[in-house]
Amino acid sequence: MRKARVIFVGLLLTALAACSVPGPGGAPDGIHDPYEATNRKVHNFNRRLDKGSVNGAGAFYVNAVPEGVQRNISNFADTYATPSYVVNQVLQGRPGRATKNTLRFVINATLGFGGLADVASDLGLTEDDTDFGETLHVWGAPEGAYQELPLLGPSTERDTAGRVVDLFTNPLSRIIPSPERYSGSVATYLDKLGDRAKYASTVDSILHDSADSYAQLRLIYLQNRRHELGYGTDEDSSFVDPDAIDTEGF
């Protein structure tokens, strides 16, 4: 067991060291995508899959399951994941946020009927999620190249490494016995399915209506992720200077 862990950490470090960094001027609009050809193939696969699941499982979930129950499932998924947020926030050196999330977990797990209700939000402790990808960012790891993963969608080399580690950062998965343990993952899956169906027209406009859905999704993911990680707009290379645009004739 111990040996396996050492091997795992070694693999992770190798993956991070391999995070490719763009050369000077090599990333216009802040996009570094050396694997574009492969990524596009995965993207086409994901898109076909998305079409099937939205018309099938997603639509069924949203239409057949009452809204209140959907909210319970969403709350449960978040409560189940909160200990993992706490672990990551401790690793990020953010004790204040880790403490708030601990409180949030305790309140929702007890007063919120095992996480089905989000009582903590009403008390001012709103959802504050994070992941190991963010922890790696805080530790100074570079973003790496853009990736589109099968089933999981857009990512970066750093976020992919983070996803792998997050399979192990939730202490609940060690405490809760085997069949019940999967309730968290199932809730998370349903929650995502619900979100996909709820924002159907927005996601459709990106995935199925835009002229180049791959380029759109890549741009939107990278910008949104950087915003989440707290990259400011002034240090952001995508800031558009109104005075630098030649509007002659428009």
Binding site: D29, S210, A211, D212, A215, Q216, L219, I220, Q223, N224, R225, R226, H227, E228, Y231, T233, S238, V240, P242
Partner: peptide
């Protein structure tokens, strides 16, 4: 007003990408 970000997503950049693809 000339630009808008929704959760960090820059409208002008998104539209430039879209128009370029079109």
């Amino acid at each position: 007003f000339y630009n808008l970000y929704l959760e960090g997503v820059n409208m002008l950049l998104t539209e430039r990408t879209e128009i370029g693809a079109m």
